[in-house]
Amino acid sequence: MNSLVDNVDGGDLAAAWLELSRLVELRPITNEAEYDRTVTLMNHVLDIMGENEQHPLAGLLELLALMVSSYDKEHYSIEEL
């Protein structure tokens, strides 16, 4: 396995996840309300980052964008002509 994953303490991981969830409720998008919340969070992260592509939140922004894009493709796909 990946040595990075092998060295992760389960208790530390759970504590970090609980703290992140408390702050932003990061979950897969399954409905419009979650979609709206995720887009709002994504826009807030963009505001925090500004033009700094090396910002510590860049990975979070990428994850949020992938989640929104995936939901968009599934629910708002534009049919090819």
Rank of each mutant, 00 (worst) to 15 (best):
V8K: 00
A14Q: 13
M1D: 03
N52D: 15
E74H: 08
P28R: 06
V5A: 12
P28E: 11
W17H: 03
L81P: 15
M1K: 02
Y76T: 12
L20V: 12
D36N: 06
E19D: 10
T40Y: 10
M49S: 04
V45H: 02
H55A: 13
N7Q: 03
E53P: 05
N52V: 12
A65E: 14
G50K: 01
I78Y: 11
N43T: 05
I78N: 12
P28C: 10
L41N: 05
M42Y: 04
S3A: 09
E62M: 09
V68G: 14
H75G: 07
L46M: 10
I78A: 14
D12R: 00
D9K: 00
V24Q: 01
N52C: 15
A16M: 09
D9C: 00
L13G: 04
L23M: 15
E25F: 02
E74Q: 11
S77R: 14
I29T: 09
D12E: 06
E80Y: 04
L41E: 03
N31V: 04
E25C: 03
E25P: 00
Y76D: 13
V5L: 13
E80G: 12
L41T: 04
G11W: 00
L61K: 00
L66W: 08
W17Q: 09
L64C: 12
R27N: 06
L4Q: 07
L23C: 15
L18G: 08
K73D: 15
E32Q: 11
A14D: 14
D9H: 00
S3G: 06
T38F: 06
V8E: 00
R37F: 07
G59Q: 02
G59S: 07
G10A: 13
M42K: 01
V24E: 03
G11I: 01
T38C: 13
H75N: 14
N7I: 03
P28D: 14
L41Y: 06
M67E: 11
